[in-house]
């Protein structure tokens, strides 16, 4: 049995990473897991960008011992992905600083609890009461996302 063609496997890898990253961002409830899913998404996107410059049977775009290879892969996506990877790590570091500040302010990293706390703080700062409804009266630090009437 032979392995599937290299192109098919690489596309599955890139799209799979992008899909798992998006799935993680949508379904995760802990801030750290959301940050890790964004990291996966960036890795998948970089891999996808690299696939666009590959030419079968060509060599890497580096000249060794003055011998010019007859076919070389595209150097432009490689330069762009180089930039993107370093920018990705800078953005990751900044995201973790934001997570640390949120933890210091609210002592929780669950996005459901954070949503309630932040809405409460914003309403208190603005001086307006939180919108409530008669069916679901407001109780302190509830966990259901429906209370507060914030809507989508």
């Amino acid at each position: 049995m032979s392995a599937p063609d290299m192109g098919v496997t690489l596309f599955i890898a890139a799209f799979g990473l992008v899909g798992i990253g998006v799935l993680g961002i949508v379904t995760a409830t802990h801030l750290v897991r959301i940050v890790l899913s964004i990291v996966l998404l960036e890795t998948g996107a970089n891999l996808l960008l690299m696939l666009s410059g590959y030419r079968g049977g060509a060599a890497a775009p580096i000249i060794v011992n003055g011998v010019l290879p007859d076919a070389m892969v595209d150097p432009v996506p490689q330069a762009l992905v180089l930039t993107a990877i370093v920018i990705g790590v800078a953005v990751q570091a900044f995201m973790m600083t934001l997570v640390l500040r949120v933890y210091r302010a609210y002592r929780t990293l669950d996005i459901r609890e954070l949503r309630t706390c932040i809405e409460r703080d914003l309403a208190r700062e603005a001086g307006i009461p939180l919108p409530t409804s008669e069916d679901a009266p407001l109780t302190p630090l509830v966990n259901e996302p429906g209370v507060g009437g914030g809507g989508p």
């Binding site: 750290v32 970089n46 891999l47 690299m50 490689q78 180089l82 790590v89 973790m96």
Partner: peptide, 28 residues
């Protein structure tokens, strides 16, 4: 990335992804 004939990008991804990013996350 090495198999895709991109040694520069492979070096960057290994140094950044496996090294620096892991350190930042673990420290946080």
């Amino acid at each position: 990335f090495v198999i895709l004939r991109a040694p520069d990008v492979a070096l960057t991804e290994a140094a950044v992804g496996a090294g620096l990013s892991g350190v930042i996350m673990a420290l946080s």
